[in-house]
Design a binder for these strands. Structure first.
Lengths: 389, 389
DNA sequence: CAGGGCACGT
DNA sequence: ACGTGCCCTG
């Protein structure tokens, strides 16, 4: 029996928008860790890996591992029936032949119940090799999307070159050549913008304990970002992509942290309670509600924007890194790889899911493009083209 | 070697939007005067003449005249990769087989470098005959666009009739007939602020100072407007690029005259126009405020205003008249001509480039439609249809 | 001014 | 699916 409650149906909408063109049918693998989806794209060139952590749900229960074979198009049709701010509950029983979806408007008095037939999909669960990446680039997702969109006009392949000086995306085609160069923002983790906001909140220390102090370090905030994070990121990219083991501090903090803290503060409330209100002031999740009214019309927005501000309380750094326009490059070794723009363009459809995107590259190895969000992440892998000239 | 820097990439975007449907490939003729483009439209019916003055660039250098054969579609693709506010630099070396474009975001750290292959286009450089136009109409570009757009729905041809009373655009087709009449705004530039939309040509009875009686002014203004003001309208069309030859002759009235007047305003008048001075003062004072308000509401406004000073550097008043919603008609002789709406509709794509458009007409002679902006202008020429019934 | 949503049309 | 135009918001 699976029962998972998502506070905002919008998340699922965005995920489906992001992935549906790459993958039309896939298994949602549910375990007590959360829900994962892993699949090759239809042309078997790229790999998509979605992870929704248990902690990303306001309620989560999965008695037994189960694989739900879903037609993404069908699921999308149904999910579109939910309001962006509806509370979405997924439910499946042992039979695994049907997925029930429940949409509840926040103000109640409107309930949608849907059932979707499931299908059998034989899933080739390919392990993703552990890789230590030579270059990691952390940039605004919109910037990445823009570059890819632009270059797509001129050619079919992008060459991505990373060096100390910056990242250079280039393409050429019939009409000419193009290149866009991004210079890294100041090396240090310093964020140029006003981090003042985050200060207002409570314990930044808290995260330490969550982290398990795997990395003993004094000034975690900036450090982890620039310094120690990269190995972790790579590590987390292993086959089960988010193995609970030694996950990167950064992600964990952003997600688990907030959740746990939530519970801690209020003694593990799973559901909305009056007290929550108080917490909300500081919390990320709550903030969304506020947003909602504003967002109601727009439909989108809330998550990302609220994140930046609302999240700040906890990991100041996490909030910051999410919102800034910085370009960060972490480089072990210069890298130059060529990829099919078409796929990158598809990956970029995940832009609405996160403020920033992380590119991980090593020569000769598939590129990893990651969009991390509060409840989990989407990762894409794409093998480079051979001719890197 | 050509190197030209445009402060706002947006200008080039707009130009390409405006022209690309009429002309798909054309030579950009670069000289130390600036950059010009002249071409027949694809069906060889209309003529397009673009002029970007050297002074329109924040930096301009052209050692040697050169003709860059450009595919406008390709150029547009590339220019779309620039942000509207990016600084755009065009560069071409002697080889003239490639045009380099550099886009720099104002805040830096993002640089786009593009190269476009050039082509050989044998250009028939047709001289544009000097013409003294019998009728000149100066009206808001949006108004013109609106009329053309509306009439296009009903027929394929527009008849444009200009008389003392105003301009009348009419068309007819299967479903019926249509006509829009614009009455010239009150002589001295009075403008009713209350005009609702551009759509309706308001037949204001504002002959008097209805707007703001606050300004009691001598009648002479009106007359002089009628009498000698028209030259001013012409004046806004700067010295002509298109027909550099013998402007002296017939053109003198429309063009040369205006030039002189320019000077006249500043110092002494070359030609008798005693009232002129007075007129200016009159104009300047009363209506100004109102107009401004109206313009702001429209939203576009500002940009073109600069033209006034850049182009002519005349009085402040000129700036004012540029942004107003006034319709000015300068008439030597009544004119009635018929044109293909399709072309006018294409010309109207230049609307984003300027607040106002100037129509110059004489019987039996091609219509000249001009959009003047800070950095230069675009002119279109279109021969009338024969049946002027 | 830029970005994002939305409805539209190709 | 994608590009476009329009409107609104930050």
């Amino acid at each position: 029996m699976l029962e998972a409650k998502l506070e905002q149906a919008e998340l699922l909408k965005k995920i489906l928008d992001a992935v549906k063109e790459l993958v039309t049918d896939a298994n949602f693998d549910c375990s007590d860790e959360g829900i994962k989806l892993q699949a090759m794209d239809n042309s078997h060139v790229a790999l998509v890996s979605l992870n929704l952590a248990k902690t990303g749900f306001s309620e989560y229960r999965c008695d037994r591992d189960m694989s739900l074979g879903v037609s993404l198009a069908s699921l999308q049709k149904i999910v579109k029936c939910a309001g962006n701010n509806d509370i979405l509950t997924l439910r499946a029983d042992e039979s695994v032949d049907v997925l029930a979806l429940l949409f509840e408007a926040k103000h109640a008095d409107r309930v949608g119940e849907y059932e979707m037939k499931l299908m059998d999909i034989d899933q080739e669960h390919l392990g993703i090799p552990d890789t230590v990446y030579d270059a990691e680039i952390d940039l605004p997702a919109t910037e990445f999307a823009r570059i890819i969109r632009d270059l797509k006009e001129l050619g079919e392949s992008v060459k991505i070159e990373v060096s100390k000086e910056g990242v250079r995306f280039s393409a050429d085609g019939d009409i000419g050549t193009a290149s866009v160069t991004l210079k890294p923002t100041d090396k240090r983790g310093r964020r140029p913008d006003s981090d003042g906001e985050d200060s207002d909140e409570e314990e930044e220390q808290e995260d330490d304990e969550d982290d398990e102090a795997e990395e003993p370090e004094p000034k975690e905030e900036e450090e982890d970002e620039d310094g120690d994070v990269k190995p972790q990121i790579a590590a987390s990219g292993d086959e089960d992509d988010d193995a609970p083991k030694s996950k990167g501090g950064k992600k964990r903090k952003a997600v688990a942290d907030s959740e746990e803290e939530d519970g801690a503060d209020e003694n593990g409330e799973d559901e909305p309670s009056p007290k929550k209100v108080k917490k909300e002031s500081g919390k990320a999740k709550p903030a969304k509600k506020e947003k909602k009214k504003a967002a109601s019309k727009k439909g989108k927005a809330s998550s990302a924007s609220s994140k930046g501000k609302a999240t700040k309380g906890k990991k100041a750094k996490s909030g910051d890194e999410e919102k800034s326009m910085d370009v960060r490059i972490n480089l072990q070794q210069a890298v130059a790889l060529t990829f099919s723009i078409k796929y990158l363009s598809n990956f970029a459809k995940s832009t609405p899911l996160a403020e920033r995107v992380h590119l991980h590259m090593s020569n000769e190895v598939p590129l990893l493009v990651e969009y991390a969000f509060e409840q989990g992440h989407i990762r894409y892998y794409l093998a480079p083209k051979l001719q890197d000239d």
